[in-house]
């Protein structure tokens, strides 16, 4: 079938503001949305700019807004985006971070927030002879949250992020959950200091855009609620 590929284009060196551009592309229902972008770049306009690497939902580089929702272009199929020939698929950069060019956003703020929650294991206790053991039950508690690939779809889907660019956002706070609930970690208090703040947990209004957008189907809100409870009970 033939589809219209509508892309929000922006080149800061020549454009004052972003504008929409529509291209025609042949597509198979089982193509990924990324295949459409590649077609446009290879055969229509080589200046089109977007991030991608693995093309298999592993690297997290091609999160963008597709048909009004944040998704990984490589992990969504054409058949799930259109109903037939001549339909239009829209592509826009993730909302809520500055655009560098076309579909490429500046991720520095996103990764600053990530670093701010200390996303590593903190344990100053004596090192055991072999590895620090974790029971299967202990791992169950964090398994879902360990699947995050840092694509940014969630944080940039949240109205709290759009309204307040400094809001930590779901991805960073999910990392805080992942380490705080890790039974081998001792850094909960340090991380709670960061997330138990007006730029943190309490700007989560359980809107669920993050859960809806996560390509790894992580129930982010569920874990952020658990982190809220940890933040509250730690003060009792």
């Amino acid at each position: 079938m033939k589809l219209n590929v509508k892309i929000k284009r922006y080149n800061p060196e020549v454009d004052d503001a972003p504008h929409w551009e529509t291209y025609e592309a042949p597509a198979d229902p089982l193509d990924s949305a990324l295949a459409l972008l590649l077609h446009v770049k290879w055969y229509e306009d080589g200046t089109l700019t977007f991030r991608k690497s693995c093309a298999h939902g592993i690297c997290g580089s091609d999160a963008m807004q597709i048909n009004g929702e944040n998704k990984l272009a490589c992990s969504v199929l054409v058949q799930d985006l259109v109903s037939g020939d001549g339909d239009t698929i829209t592509f826009a950069p993730l909302p809520g971070s500055p655009v560098i060019k076309d579909l490429v956003i500046d991720q520095s703020r996103f990764f600053e927030k990530y670093r701010s929650v200390k996303p590593w294991m903190i344990n100053d206790g004596p090192a055991p002879e072999r590895e620090r053991l974790q029971s299967p039950e202990d791992f169950d508690m964090i398994e879902d949250s360990t699947k995050c690939i840092m694509c940014g779809a969630c944080t940039h889907s949240c109205p709290s992020t759009w309204a307040d660019p400094e809001y930590l956002g779901p991805a960073a706070m999910l990392k805080a959950y992942r380490y705080n609930m890790d039974t081998r970690d001792d850094g909960s208090d340090e991380r709670l200091e960061v997330v138990d703040s007006s730029e943190g947990l309490w700007k989560c209004y359980t809107i669920f855009n993050c859960v809806q957008s996560c390509p790894k189907d992580i129930d982010i809100t569920r874990w952020l609620s658990a982190l809220k409870r940890q933040a509250v009970t730690s003060q009792l």
Partner: peptide, 22 residues
């Protein structure tokens, strides 16, 4: 870089159950 723009801060976003409820 100065060129980077915040113009995509409020893009139309599909309203699902959770956002509607909020």
């Amino acid at each position: 870089p100065k060129a980077a723009t915040d113009s995509n801060r409020f893009q139309w976003y599909k309203v699902r159950t959770g956002m509607f409820a909020w």
